[in-house]
């Protein structure tokens, strides 16, 4: 990242960050910043909220209004922020464990309400910070410290979950496709409603080592080889997509936004007075 961009958006005294060598989160954080820079948003009008976990360290390095909250509750805090300050651009940076396990309920309800929050999930398929326990997105059969013989749970498809719960914008990209993340986050911020972006990261320290996936570069190469853009499979029905990561803009629609609906109620009673 260029010095100019870094000095503009980072708390320089907090860097270098604490993420492990080769962790994909740094790439994803850069992509999010690039999206904010491309949109030319006023720094004081952006609020970045996170929960607990490796991913949730991100707001500590970012020079916006930031909030580091309790485990899984980033979306609950973000809902409060958005209700109190509807003109803020609220961006939630969260992890797979944070958003899909302990915060799963907050995720589905924020999506159901279609509140104008952009959620970026840094999905590294494992609980990295606490030592490599399997998470709801650890693929079936893969190992973690709490699943030494392989995980028997079926993993979540987070984008389908968000869409099913009512999110009006969903997209997926990987740390290898850094520019696509930027594009999706940009469109997510522009979308008036709940936007959900799943950003696949790499965790060479825990997930990679436990599952013999090689080093950071090998894992990045895997993301590249396993990904297929949703546009490329549009008119193909019999393609084998079992082990593929489908990336790109997956869903985009327009629904009434929560804070606007809330304001309408307030205005209705103001008139009656």
């Amino acid at each position: 990242m260029s010095n100019k961009l870094a000095k503009k958006y980072f708390r320089m005294d907090k860097l270098p960050h604490i993420w492990c060598p080769g962790c994909g989160h740094g790439i994803l954080m850069r992509s999010v910043i690039q999206a904010i820079d491309n949109l030319g948003l006023n720094k004081d009008k952006v609020c970045v909220v996170s929960g607990i976990g490796c991913s949730s360290r991100a707001p500590g390095y970012l020079d916006f209004n930031t909030l580091h909250t309790t485990h899984g509750r980033a979306l609950a805090f973000a809902t409060g922020i958005k209700m109190a300050n509807p003109d803020l651009h609220v961006i939630v940076v969260t992890g797979d464990g944070d958003s899909a396990a302990i915060g799963g309920n907050h995720l589905i309800h924020a999506a159901r309400r279609n509140i104008d929050i952009t959620t970026v999930v840094f999905n590294n398929n494992i609980y990295g910070m606490t030592g490599g326990q399997y998470s709801p997105t650890t693929p079936t059969g893969d190992k973690g410290t709490t699943a030494p013989y392989g995980n028997i749970d079926k993993n979540f498809d987070l984008c389908k979950l968000a869409k099913g719960a009512g999110s009006t914008y969903t997209g997926r990209a990987t740390a290898y496709h850094a520019n696509l993340i930027t594009k999706l986050v940009q469109k997510g911020i522009e979308n008036k409603g709940f936007s959900f972006i799943e950003a696949l990261s790499v965790c060479p320290t825990y997930y990679g080592r436990k599952n013999k996936k090689g080093d950071a570069s090998d894992m990045m190469k895997h993301l590249k080889d396993a990904s297929i853009n949703v546009k490329a499979i549009k008119n193909k029905t019999n393609e084998n997509l079992e082990d593929k990561i489908i990336i790109g803009e997956l869903y985009n629609s327009q629904e009434p936004e929560y804070t606007e609906q809330y304001k309408k109620i307030i205005n209705r009673f103001k008139k009656e007075r």
Binding site: M1, F10, H17, W19, G26, I27, R30, A178, N179, M220
Partner: peptide, 8 residues
């Protein structure tokens, strides 16, 4: 620059 996770 695009892929460096540490902005180094």
């Amino acid at each position: 620059e695009l892929r460096c996770p540490d902005y180094a």
